[in-house]
């Protein structure tokens, strides 16, 4: 394999290590920013939850618990797969790394399909954001529209991040297959993987908030 290619750093960096360090720190700072982005809407959710405990319990109880839980397992598995792929690429096993990234992408796609199935189910029941739909003519609990609006807001934003993550992983996969990424440039895959893990971590918190309790 051609993994022994020595990469030259960009001209404003002294070494490739410095460049990789900068890229890694940059990604972490970006993730910190993402945490606060999701944090804002989660803080709003929590505040409404404290305000309307009963309505939010009703909302959680009505949610598609099984589908949401399966999705959690899907994302956890995908995270494990992409972590293994980084490990494989570092060890020079490019083919294995490629397969594992492909598996991650497949699992991510499954996640989105299940998510859309859930949305379809909600729409069928007459649950739309903003308290619109026939569901809310039967269920009046004050605060219930806020639960579902926030549900759509939070999962929608998360699904958007999943889509972005899938795009990034897709680009990385094609570069692995074209042998443009190897052991020496494994940090590029690592950055994509870190982003994917963040998407996973956010879902780890959305799951109990929206589906469990």
């Amino acid at each position: 394999m051609s993994d022994t290619t020595v990469l030259a750093p960009q001209e404003h960096f002294a070494t490739i290590e410095q460049q990789a360090h900068a890229a890694r720190l940059g990604m972490w700072v970006f993730l910190a920013s993402e945490v606060l982005l999701f944090g804002a809407i989660i803080a709003l959710f929590t505040s409404y939850q404290v305000h309307y405990p009963d309505a939010f319990r009703q909302g959680v109880d009505h949610n598609t618990k099984l589908l949401g839980s399966i999705n959690t397992g899907v994302l956890l598995t995908s995270s494990t797969a992409v972590a293994c792929s980084v490990h494989a690429l570092r060890a020079g096993k490019r083919r294995l790394a490629g397969l594992l990234v492909a598996a991650t992408i497949a699992l991510g796609a499954v996640f989105l399909v299940i998510k859309l199935t859930e949305y379809a189910k909600h729409f069928h029941e007459g649950i739309y954001p903003g308290g619109a739909g026939s569901f809310f003519q039967v269920h009046h609990a004050r605060g219930l529209p806020e639960f579902w609006t926030l549900y759509f807001g939070m999962t929608g934003l998360h699904a958007l991040h999943v889509t972005i993550g899938l795009t990034v992983l897709g680009v990385l996969l094609s570069r692995i297959m074209r042998a443009e990424l190897g052991a020496a440039s494994a940090h590029r895959l690592e950055l994509g993987a870190i982003y994917w893990h963040l998407v996973d971590v956010i879902w780890i918190f959305l799951w109990p908030l929206l589906y469990l309790a």
Binding site: H51, D54, A141, R142
Partner: peptide, 19 residues
């Protein structure tokens, strides 16, 4: 306005909001 906010013990929360 928010009947669910302070439900008195022993009563079911069935009152709609008058908001």
């Amino acid at each position: 306005m928010e009947p669910a906010a302070d439900v008195v013990a022993g009563y079911a929360q069935v009152m709609p909001t008058y908001q």
